[in-house]
Design a binder for these strands. Structure first.
Length: 324
DNA sequence: CGGCTTTGACCTGCGC
DNA sequence: GCGCAGGTCAAAGCCG
């Protein structure tokens, strides 16, 4: 998480805590606290209180105000801590779901024969060498050809669901070489090869999501061995995108949230082996961070477990406070 | 005329 | 061995 996100998150938590304090503690201040604190300590007000007594009363009130402020601060810090823990748990859960999906996909995927240049480079999504080629094929291939390549999947929101050409502008030039209707999806899957450089082994598959036709599922395989068209270095798709289709929460939340244009560099320059790192940098763009913050805040406010836990924590604190 | 898209045929791996 | 499904090929057509 970037510092900006953390600070935004913290500020949101602070806002929430302030609201809570205004509601809860303000209520307590009026009804409970004065009774407990002042009974016995304060002189009886019979209409003839001296100025000195009034000063003492004011001093007690100031002291009480300070106590309330410090308690407010403690609650705020506690809430920030709860927010951080919740966020950490959520990201951990996301990672678990993601790894589970990846594992399942690698189990289900059937590696087909492809052209020899490309086939020797197949790996799994996580960059693990999951090439499932047969032993015969392994024997045919020289060992030096078993170079890892990247397989990346993206979810792209397309505003035009009627367009069957499945256009995804990413700065490279693609030649369509096939189209197939797959079993699990009524929408046809289009197959593209990079035509910018004749020897470029990169392939791309584009298919509309079966769940939501407004989303395009783009799968990139391989890495470009050339630079992209300079005139298209930064291509804003005019679409909302989210990386990593294996994260259903993000995809779903993207659907539910207001349209947000996020520019992602979907491709890696030639010879770059830190493609994932670059993608992470893109994901950590301010727009994407803002989206994440919104999702976190939304998750926090909508999650009944979180709200109940927070209420329990605060009520426990209040009980401790009233008992002391 | 060259480049691109379309589309049916073909190839290949996997499951039964 | 056969059928199925995903992936690829290549001829035909389209377009600038």
């Amino acid at each position: 998480m970037s510092p900006k996100t953390a600070s935004t998150m913290k500020s949101r938590c602070l806002n929430t805590s302030l609201d809570l304090n205004l509601g809860t503690l303000g209520h307590m201040k009026e009804e409970e606290t004065p009774k407990r604190e002042y009974v016995g300590d304060l002189p009886h007000v019979d209409g003839k209180s001296s100025v000195k007594e009034e000063y003492e009363k004011a001093g007690l009130l100031v002291e009480e105000l300070h106590r309330m402020s410090s308690e407010n601060k403690r609650l705020t810090e506690m809430l920030v801590h709860v927010c951080e823990n919740y966020n950490a748990l959520q990201s951990h859960l996301k990672d678990l779901v993601k790894s589970k999906h990846t594992e399942q996909e690698s189990m289900n995927s059937r590696k087909r024969k492809a052209d020899s240049d490309y086939h020797g480079n197949m790996i799994g999504i996580n960059g693990n060498n999951e090439c499932s080629s047969s032993d015969e094929e392994s024997r045919k291939r020289p060992k030096e050809e078993t170079i890892k390549t990247k397989v990346k999947r993206f979810c792209v929101r397309s505003s035009d669901t009627s367009n069957n050409s499945l256009p995804v502008q990413d700065g490279y030039q693609w030649r369509k070489y096939g189209q197939k209707v797959t079993r699990d999806n009524p929408s046809p899957r289009a197959y593209f090869k990079c035509s910018f450089a004749p020897s470029c082994p990169v392939k791309k598959k584009v298919q509309r999501s079966a769940e939501d036709p407004s989303f395009l599922v783009v799968t990139y395989e391989g890495e470009h061995n050339h630079h992209k068209n300079p005139s298209q270095v930064e291509v804003s798709l005019g679409l909302s995108q989210c990386e990593n289709l294996e994260s259903p929460s993000i995809s779903a939340s993207m659907r539910s949230s207001a349209p947000t244009t996020v520019t992602l560099d979907l491709v890696q320059p030639a010879g770059l082996h830190d493609g994932a790192k670059k993608s992470n940098q893109e994901v950590e763009s301010p727009a994407f961070q803002q989206f994440l913050v919104q999702q976190m805040a939304s998750s926090l406010t909508k999650d009944p477990n979180f709200t109940s836990a927070l209420a329990a924590a605060i009520s426990g604190r209040i009980l401790d406070y009233t008992m002391n």
